[in-house]
Simulated scan of single mutants.
Amino acid sequence: MNDFLELVVGATASGCVYGLVALGYLLITRPTGIINFAVGEWAMVAAFGAYVLLSRFELPYALGMALVLVFMFALGWLTERLTVRPLLNKGAPPLAPILVLLGMLVVFRESVSIGFGPDPQPVPPSFGFGRLELGPIAGSYQSFFIIALTALVFVAAWYFFERTLAGKSFEAVAIDRRAAALMGINLGRVTSLSFAAGAVVAGLAGMLVAPNVSAHYLMGMPLAIQGFTALVIGGVGRVEGALLGGLILAFAEQFTVRYAPVPPGLAMGVPLLLLIVFLLARPTGLLRAREARA
């Protein structure tokens, strides 16, 4: 029983990471309609930022995290301004920004590979490598830290969209960009902030998972697939759907690896299998967008 509960804690922590990556997708996709597959590479860049500041320079953990997140905000903002904005201003077809961002995916990955080499780099966990036991529930300090911090992020994201005027402007752009522009909402500012916020959330996911898997230049693509699958499962239109999809995906992965009579390598295909199933059976995800509900 204790082993099962520890597996639940580990799966919940993994699901939180997937949910954060999915939220990074959602923050960009909802107001812009652009699917940014470079979100996984943003998580990878942040993981290496954590390696530099926390391992090499040994900064305090909170300060190092804050500096990396500020850098990710700037990186997301610049990515939109330099690659996406010119295409939108020229009236390029919807596929053009997606293709450009796929090119940026390669740029981010190869830049890190050249700068840091192919070897994994260690990132220290926030509270060390110890274990926390709460009665029958046990897990690593990092797992509980991931769960707690993710809960705070999703509560903050929900509050932003549901209770703030700025969040309402994001929702208005998501529902009808032309009507939002006629109401005086600055579409360019919303687009820039959506990319910056997506980069921050994806970067946070990268920093949280890095102590468990190390910072590696190839870590971005699996996170991109897992995050996108989580978004499809939960529903593109709901903040809480990103977390729900991440948890469902992580539990499916962890329980397949632990209990299913298949080689661990085949369990890596669980996200792709779930992605195909949901795209065919329920493309809107488990939770529909609010404007789609009766």
Rank of each mutant, 00 (worst) to 15 (best):
L5Y: 14
L5F: 14
L7T: 12
T12H: 05
T12N: 02
G15Y: 02
G15T: 00
G15F: 02
C16Y: 00
C16V: 02
V21T: 06
L23N: 02
R30K: 14
G33L: 08
I35K: 00
I35S: 09
A38E: 00
G40S: 09
G40I: 07
G40K: 11
V45F: 01
A47T: 06
A50I: 08
Y51T: 11
L53A: 14
L63F: 13
G64R: 04
G64V: 07
L67Y: 10
V68K: 08
V68P: 12
L69P: 03
F71Y: 12
F71I: 10
M72T: 10
F73V: 07
F73Q: 05
A74Y: 01
W77C: 03
W77S: 11
T79F: 05
T79A: 12
E80F: 14
E80C: 10
T83D: 00
V84A: 10
V84Y: 10
L88A: 12
G91T: 05
P93G: 08
A96G: 00
A96C: 02
A96Q: 05
P97T: 07
L99F: 14
L102G: 09
G103F: 00
M104G: 00
V107F: 13
R109W: 00
E110A: 05
V112R: 05
I114E: 07
I114M: 13
F116C: 11
P120D: 09
Q121Y: 04
V123C: 04
P124T: 04
F127M: 12
R131W: 11
R131S: 15
E133H: 12
P136C: 08
S140Y: 11
Q142I: 03
Q142K: 01
S143T: 00
I147N: 03
L149Q: 04
L149A: 06
L149T: 12
T150Q: 03
A151V: 14
L152D: 04
A156D: 05
A157D: 01
W158K: 15
Y159P: 00
F160S: 11
F160G: 11
R163K: 15
L165F: 11
G167H: 02
K168A: 14
F170D: 03
E171K: 15
A174L: 10
I175L: 14
R178K: 14
M183D: 03
M183Y: 03
I185Y: 03
I185E: 03
L187I: 15
L193Y: 13
S194F: 05
A196E: 07
G198Q: 09
G198P: 09
G206Y: 04
P211N: 05
V213F: 11
L218A: 14
M219W: 00
G220Q: 06
A230S: 10
A230E: 01
V232K: 02
V236T: 13
V236G: 06
G237D: 10
V239P: 00
L244A: 13
I248T: 10
A250C: 02
A250E: 01
Q254G: 12
T256N: 02
T256M: 03
V257P: 02
A260S: 01
P261A: 06
V262M: 15
P264H: 07
P264K: 10
P264E: 02
M268Y: 08
G269E: 04
V270M: 11
V277F: 12
V277E: 07
L279F: 10
L279M: 14
L280K: 11
R282P: 05
R282A: 08
L287N: 06
L287V: 12
E291C: 06
E291K: 09
A292L: 15
